[in-house]
């Protein structure tokens, strides 16, 4: 081989590698749909504390919040605009971590005028149909994981605003910490639930498809409670086997990658042959 030929072959190999890498990476990075919240598969057994080691490896999605439409007084006066959501799954449990800015830690409701900070994660009880975003509907209920700074966690069932009832045997756990101060203060909250928890009106987490999920946050010191809350649109956890993200996209990139590699390979071989023939 001449030195020219070696250089050409090297270039081709680099090109081929680049193409291959991009075919794998692109769907994960740039093409993730806006309402998808990735769920990281992990071996770590315990992510139940907001500061547990391992959360730094789980990607966070910024979920936008806005005042929920509601008939209660001051419904459009809410303060929290974004919640950062992370989700991780072991073969036993699903962990959902929320983090949001809140300058005050409101954990008491033991005065007539005080309200506690709170948050909620909402799933359809039946993953096959997306319920109305505002607490579901009578025929299309939602399973809510609720946490309040004053009273801890509650698992709820709702079929429309005002219909919330608590599960007698909740399957969820929640741990929260408030840290920082002033403009840098945040709540971090982790909910978790065994994947195999069953029960009437309890969302099945051992599902192969996408699972709809929505979020809500209440700022207690702003008098937020009930329908006066900051809520997200429906998002989804892409549960299911194999690589994540829409598979056809990965397939297309792979086909394109293989074709480019082949073309580069054939071209290189052609040039090499031509030079050798000289």
């Amino acid at each position: 081989m001449t030195s020219d030929a070696v250089r050409t072959a090297g270039l081709a190999a680099v090109l081929a590698t680049l193409v291959l890498v991009s075919s794998v990476a692109a769907p994960l990075a740039s093409a993730r749909p806006a309402h998808e919240i990735p769920v990281t598969e992990t071996e770590r057994a315990d992510l139940s504390q907001p500061a547990a080691a391992g959360w730094e490896d789980v990607p966070a999605s910024d979920v936008a919040l806005a005042s929920a439409p509601s008939g209660v007084p001051n419904a459009d006066d809410t303060t929290v605009e974004t919640v950062h959501v992370q989700a991780a799954r072991t073969d036993q449990r699903l962990f959902v971590r929320l983090e949001w800015d809140d300058a005050t830690r409101d954990v008491s409701a033991d005065d007539p005028r005080t309200f506690a900070d709170a948050a909620a994660v909402q799933f359809p009880t039946n993953a096959s149909a997306r319920p109305p975003i505002a607490m579901g509907g009578p025929g299309n209920k939602v399973n809510v994981w609720f946490w309040s700074g004053a009273t801890g966690s509650q698992e709820l069932l709702a079929g429309g605003a005002g219909s919330t009832t608590a599960f007698q045997n909740p399957a969820i756990e929640a741990n929260a910490t408030h840290s920082g101060s002033g403009g840098n203060a945040t709540w971090a909250l982790v909910y978790s639930r065994p994947l195999n928890a069953t029960g009437e009106n309890r969302t099945a987490l051992q599902t192969d498809g996408d699972l709809d999920v929505a979020f809500a946050v209440w700022n207690g010191s702003n008098g937020e409670r009930a329908g006066q809350k900051a809520v997200s649109e429906w998002h989804y956890f892409p549960f299911g086997p194999g690589p994540q993200g829409p598979p056809y996209e990965t397939l297309l990139w792979t086909v394109a990658g293989v074709a480019i590699v082949a073309v580069v390979g054939v071209t290189t071989f052609g040039i090499y042959r031509t030079r050798e023939g000289n």
């Binding site: 209660v72 007539p112 409670r225």
Partner: peptide, 9 residues
């Protein structure tokens, strides 16, 4: 009752 206190006000 979930302690919202809309009745109180």
């Amino acid at each position: 009752c979930r302690g919202y206190r809309y009745c109180v006000e």
